[in-house]
Design a protein around this nucleic acid. Sequence first.
DNA 1: TATTGTTATACTCTATAACTATA
DNA 2: TATAGTTATAGAGTATAACAATA
Lengths: 163, 163
Amino acid sequence: MMSIFGRLVLMSNDAPEASRAVEPELSDDISFLLARANALSLAAGNSALSTHGLRVRSYSVLALAAGRSRTSQRELAEFLRLDPSQVVALVDELQVRGLIRREPDPADRRANVVIATDDGRAVLAVAAASARSAERALHVGLSAAERVQLTELLRRIAFPGVG
Amino acid sequence: MMSIFGRLVLMSNDAPEASRAVEPELSDDISFLLARANALSLAAGNSALSTHGLRVRSYSVLALAAGRSRTSQRELAEFLRLDPSQVVALVDELQVRGLIRREPDPADRRANVVIATDDGRAVLAVAAASARSAERALHVGLSAAERVQLTELLRRIAFPGVG
DNA sequence: TATTGTTATACTCTATAACTATA
DNA sequence: TATAGTTATAGAGTATAACAATA
């Protein structure tokens, strides 16, 4: 019997219309493909980053803290689509390890700006190399042009209203 | 001060190379964009499906059970990237509600083929409409051609080695 | 010996509500 | 009155290991 994976190929492009109209096909869903691609990406990313004592989420916080935007915890939460309370725990952990520090925002004493330390930047630099090579493995089947294309399309879904 | 979101636009395409080389930029990461896009997609999907007493994962199982592939629990797990033990719980739940049934595979008595009941197909039909409209809202900014393009690119990441 | 489904368990992630200090 | 950060808690998702039935 043909497996469910085998059917993927048939359905992708040139299957006769009649065979697609019978029932909703999951494998045509952008949402489903997004979920599966993300699951693979997350697993590969966590695996690659574990060497450096990081996971995808802590790596993301560290990377943003190393940026030039003087990002507050609130902005971090919004950008990473995390609840502010989750950011507290992530920032705590990275701060204990001396990779980032909280700096009160002079303009708004409620807010903490999160900034990478020199140690943090050093860890980030090597971790980023691992992360990139894991990412490369993920879309090794895509050409450079296709990667750019995918990045742009994803950005418009991930950040609607920007650009 | 420019927010981290504001910087997104600048970095997307034509930022001078010098400003990108300073540190790794999260917003250029396919992995990060995948995670954020998926988070939005998952939230929208779960919200849309909750009306029908489903979530994205149970909907996925139901949709595959309604397909013509006579899919085993093992195949379900592989396709949805879930552990077989998680599939047990999802199938249990849908079976209790009478939406699917387990049918022993005559060819391999270890395996259960999961099949949607008529009730299950009816629920799926209306739930699918909700799911599709939630998905549409997600990529409303994309043209039809871009949606096809994105689907194809995602498929190659989500199912490496197929096609 | 290996695989399918199952049970059990622990850990991570997600979602909510409430509190404090500032605005 | 609203917002930034924090604490606490519960529910959903993820990862592993072990076991019975069958291959």
